[in-house]
Simulated scan of single mutants.
Amino acid sequence: MMRKDPQPLPNTRFPPERQPGEPSSPKHGRPNKPMPPVFGTAIPPRGLSGAIRKLAYRYPDHYPRHWLLMMLGDRVDSWGTRVRRLLPVAVPLAVLGFLGSLVRR
Protein backbone atom coordinates (compact mmCIF):
# COMPACT_ATOMS: atom_id res chain seq x y z
CA MET A 1 0.00 0.00 0.00
CA MET A 2 1.40 3.37 -0.99
CA ARG A 3 1.46 6.06 1.68
CA LYS A 4 0.95 9.70 0.85
CA ASP A 5 2.47 12.66 2.62
CA PRO A 6 -0.02 14.56 4.75
CA GLN A 7 -1.66 17.45 2.94
CA PRO A 8 -3.70 20.33 4.39
CA LEU A 9 -7.42 20.39 3.76
CA PRO A 10 -8.45 22.41 0.70
CA ASN A 11 -10.02 25.39 2.57
CA THR A 12 -7.35 25.86 5.24
CA ARG A 13 -4.88 28.71 5.57
CA PHE A 14 -1.40 27.36 5.17
CA PRO A 15 0.86 27.90 7.01
CA PRO A 16 -1.37 28.35 10.06
CA GLU A 17 -1.29 31.77 11.72
CA ARG A 18 -0.46 32.09 15.40
CA GLN A 19 -3.23 33.38 17.62
CA PRO A 20 -2.60 36.81 19.12
CA GLY A 21 -2.00 37.27 22.84
CA GLU A 22 -0.17 35.41 25.55
CA PRO A 23 -0.88 31.74 26.32
CA SER A 24 -2.81 31.35 29.55
CA SER A 25 -1.32 29.21 32.27
CA PRO A 26 -1.62 29.44 36.05
CA LYS A 27 1.25 31.63 37.26
CA HIS A 28 2.08 33.40 40.48
CA GLY A 29 3.79 36.71 40.98
CA ARG A 30 6.54 34.98 42.97
CA PRO A 31 8.19 31.97 41.32
CA ASN A 32 8.47 29.86 44.48
CA LYS A 33 4.98 30.51 45.81
CA PRO A 34 3.04 27.22 46.10
CA MET A 35 -0.19 26.67 44.21
CA PRO A 36 -3.34 26.74 46.36
CA PRO A 37 -4.97 23.44 47.38
CA VAL A 38 -7.61 22.04 45.07
CA PHE A 39 -10.36 21.55 47.65
CA GLY A 40 -12.42 24.53 48.78
CA THR A 41 -12.76 25.66 52.37
CA ALA A 42 -16.49 26.46 52.21
CA ILE A 43 -17.16 22.88 53.33
CA PRO A 44 -13.89 21.55 54.77
CA PRO A 45 -13.19 17.79 54.60
CA ARG A 46 -14.48 16.02 57.71
CA GLY A 47 -14.45 12.56 59.19
CA LEU A 48 -12.39 9.62 58.04
CA SER A 49 -12.80 10.47 54.34
CA GLY A 50 -11.61 14.02 55.02
CA ALA A 51 -8.54 12.74 56.82
CA ILE A 52 -7.75 10.48 53.85
CA ARG A 53 -8.16 13.39 51.44
CA LYS A 54 -5.91 15.63 53.54
CA LEU A 55 -3.30 12.87 53.43
CA ALA A 56 -3.68 12.68 49.65
CA TYR A 57 -3.03 16.42 49.26
CA ARG A 58 0.41 15.98 50.83
CA TYR A 59 1.55 14.27 47.63
CA PRO A 60 1.90 15.97 44.22
CA ASP A 61 -0.73 15.36 41.56
CA HIS A 62 1.60 13.30 39.38
CA TYR A 63 2.00 10.55 42.00
CA PRO A 64 -0.46 7.66 41.65
CA ARG A 65 -0.53 7.58 45.46
CA HIS A 66 -2.35 10.97 45.41
CA TRP A 67 -5.14 9.77 43.12
CA LEU A 68 -5.51 6.38 44.80
CA LEU A 69 -5.94 8.06 48.18
CA MET A 70 -8.46 10.49 46.67
CA MET A 71 -10.47 7.58 45.28
CA LEU A 72 -10.27 5.78 48.62
CA GLY A 73 -11.60 8.92 50.33
CA ASP A 74 -14.52 8.99 47.90
CA ARG A 75 -15.31 5.32 48.58
CA VAL A 76 -15.17 5.83 52.35
CA ASP A 77 -17.47 8.85 52.00
CA SER A 78 -20.01 6.92 49.91
CA TRP A 79 -20.04 3.98 52.35
CA GLY A 80 -20.45 6.40 55.25
CA THR A 81 -23.47 7.91 53.52
CA ARG A 82 -24.98 4.46 52.99
CA VAL A 83 -24.47 3.50 56.63
CA ARG A 84 -25.94 6.81 57.79
CA ARG A 85 -29.00 6.23 55.60
CA LEU A 86 -29.55 2.65 56.85
CA LEU A 87 -28.84 3.40 60.52
CA PRO A 88 -32.43 4.49 61.42
CA VAL A 89 -33.69 1.14 60.13
CA ALA A 90 -30.88 -1.11 61.36
CA VAL A 91 -30.78 0.06 65.00
CA PRO A 92 -34.47 -0.66 65.79
CA LEU A 93 -34.22 -4.04 64.06
CA ALA A 94 -31.14 -4.91 66.13
CA VAL A 95 -32.90 -3.85 69.34
CA LEU A 96 -35.95 -5.93 68.43
CA GLY A 97 -33.74 -8.93 67.68
CA PHE A 98 -31.93 -8.51 71.01
CA LEU A 99 -35.20 -8.20 72.93
CA GLY A 100 -36.63 -11.19 71.08
CA SER A 101 -33.66 -13.31 72.10
CA LEU A 102 -34.13 -12.25 75.75
CA VAL A 103 -37.82 -13.16 75.68
CA ARG A 104 -37.12 -16.67 74.28
CA ARG A 105 -34.89 -17.56 77.23
Rank of each mutant, 00 (worst) to 15 (best):
N11D: 13
P88F: 03
R82W: 15
P37E: 03
L93Q: 05
S49V: 04
R3W: 08
R84I: 04
R75N: 13
P64R: 05
V89P: 01
R104E: 11
F39D: 06
P36Y: 02
G29S: 10
T12L: 07
L102M: 11
P64Q: 03
M35Y: 05
P6H: 05
V38Q: 11
F98Q: 07
R84F: 02
Y59F: 15
A94N: 06
G73Y: 00
E22L: 11
R85W: 14
H62F: 13
Q7M: 11
K54F: 02
H66A: 02
T12K: 07
P45I: 01
M71I: 08
K54H: 07
P20E: 03
L86T: 03
K33V: 14
P60M: 03
L86H: 07
M1Q: 08
N32I: 13
Y63T: 12
S25E: 07
R58D: 09
L48V: 14
G73I: 01
V76R: 02
R58F: 11
P23Y: 04
A94P: 06
P64M: 06
D77R: 11
M70R: 13
E17D: 09
A94F: 09
A90R: 00
L48P: 07
P10R: 05
L87I: 09
R30P: 02
M2L: 10
H66I: 00
H66E: 01
R82P: 02
G73C: 04
P88Q: 03
S101T: 13
E22F: 12
L87C: 12
R46L: 12
Y57N: 12
H28G: 15
L93E: 01
P26M: 06
R53P: 02
S78I: 15
G73D: 03
V38F: 10
R65L: 15
Y59S: 12
K4N: 11
Y63A: 06
R65G: 09
G47Y: 03
V95Y: 03
Y59C: 10
Q19D: 05
E17R: 11
A51M: 11
P16W: 00
I52Y: 00
R65Q: 13
F39N: 09
G40A: 12
